[in-house]
């Protein structure tokens, strides 16, 4: 069982609230999304495991149950080519849940014309594999977003 923590502080809105059909329709997996507090901050690892993918705007951490969790910082943020993002870890690193992975600024993302909404996705999970999914209300960084059985 994997407890998945919120990478950022903000308001949970559910995947359906993400302005991108791939996430909103859970094409790459179920999960939720967080509309982040508009302040520069450091997004954390949602689970303890290995960073198997690390882009400035997105990362995947796989835990010891082989559960891969994608954190996507903002929508269409690949177009920002890393501007406004700074890596605080490296691909291949082992991280503990809660450790910072990427420094970023939702205000700058929004100023660049992109949504800063963060999708948190249980990659390739069945819809029924997630329980206690938080899809509304305020969340702190590190608040549990869902449990992946």
């Amino acid at each position: 069982m994997t407890r998945v923590l919120s990478p950022v502080a903000g308001r949970a809105i559910g995947l359906a609230g993400v302005p991108d059909p791939v996430f909103a329709q859970a094409m790459v997996g179920p999960g939720t999304a967080v509309d982040p507090v508009r302040a520069a901050g450091r997004a954390i690892a949602p689970v303890t495991g290995r960073i198997v993918k690390l882009h400035p705007h997105a990362y995947v951490v796989v835990d010891d149950e082989d559960h891969g969790v994608l954190v996507h910082l903002g929508i269409e943020t690949v177009k920002l080519k890393g501007r406004g993002f700074a890596l605080l870890a490296a691909e291949g690193d082992e991280v503990n849940a809660g450790e910072p992975v990427v420094a970023w600024d939702p205000v700058a993302v929004e100023a660049a014309g992109r949504s800063p909404i963060c999708a948190v996705v249980a990659l390739d999970a069945d819809g029924g594999a997630l329980t206690r999914v938080r899809a509304d209300g305020p969340v702190h960084q590190g608040t549990e977003l869902f449990t992946w059985v």
Partner: peptide, 16 residues
């Protein structure tokens, strides 16, 4: 898994 098209931009959703 899916194909999203918007004019000349084609997004091919393939997973991780």
């Amino acid at each position: 898994i899916a194909v999203l098209r918007s004019g000349p931009v084609v997004q091919v959703v393939v997973g991780p």
